[in-house]
Design a protein around this nucleic acid. Structure first.
Lengths: 124, 124
DNA sequence: TGTATCTATATGTAAATTACATATAGTAAA
DNA sequence: TTTACTATATGTAATTTACATATAGATACA
């Protein structure tokens, strides 16, 4: 654990990992079809206290999700700009999103209980 | 991403990583001095929706935390049983715990907003 | 025309977190 | 004496994410 890095950049987001890339992408794609470049920016709509995800992570996660059958894609050539790989959510993807939502309820309770226990012993 | 594994074992805890080992250990050690073997069991007091952490992770995390100055340890030989490495939290550790608590507030809000946005588009 | 910027996707590599397997050794109980 | 419990530790692998870099078409602008 390199904690200089941790302290400088990451403590404000409550840990480096678990940025919830998959559930956020699934939720955005349930709302409408989209593609990597756009999703990078739409991910910032969520008030996750983290710096923006880099594009590489988003592109790679989408490809992995497609390999699992959570989303599917096809190339779309518009009037302007380079072609986009358009993604849409599948039924398996909606099921996975539902599982994420359920687990988030539990996680919320866990965080609340941590905060409460922290406050009990806090003198400052 | 190996999602067979994910689905079988991990979806119920909202993701494999970010088990919050460090903040939970810091909170337990602020309450009282303790040692690895005991902490493994005390970690289960938290209602984190996850399977228990294995001992190896706890021992290794404690050593890493000591290398960062968040805790300090000394051997303690009791009347019975093998000697224990007793840990206590340092001032740096208390500061880190405070930073964790603050970030947990943000994370709670992020999770709430995710759940809310999920429910808006949910028809089931 | 050239060049810089924006759009868009992709791969290589490394670091950080955690899981699983295994090793060691003293102690207690059957 | 064999088994189980207490207690710590290391090796290795999988998973998630960060950072660097590459490619290439489209657009703006000098």
């Amino acid at each position: 654990m390199n904690m200089e890095k941790y302290e400088d950049e990451l403590c404000e987001c409550g840990g480096r990992f678990n940025r919830f890339v998959e559930p956020r992408l699934l939720l955005l794609l349930r709302e409408k079809k989209s593609y990597g470049y756009e999703l990078v920016r739409r991910l910032e709509e969520f008030p996750f206290p983290c710096p923006p995800l880099d594009a590489a992570t988003v592109y790679r996660t989408l490809r992995n999700m497609e390999a699992e059958g959570l989303v599917k894609s096809e190339w779309e050539t518009g009037e302007s700009g380079p072609p986009k790989r358009m993604y849409q959510i599948t039924m398996d993807g909606e099921d996975r999103l539902h599982a994420w939502a359920l687990s988030f309820e539990d996680r919320k309770k866990a965080i609340e209980s941590f905060i409460e226990r922290y406050n009990i012993g806090n003198n400052k």
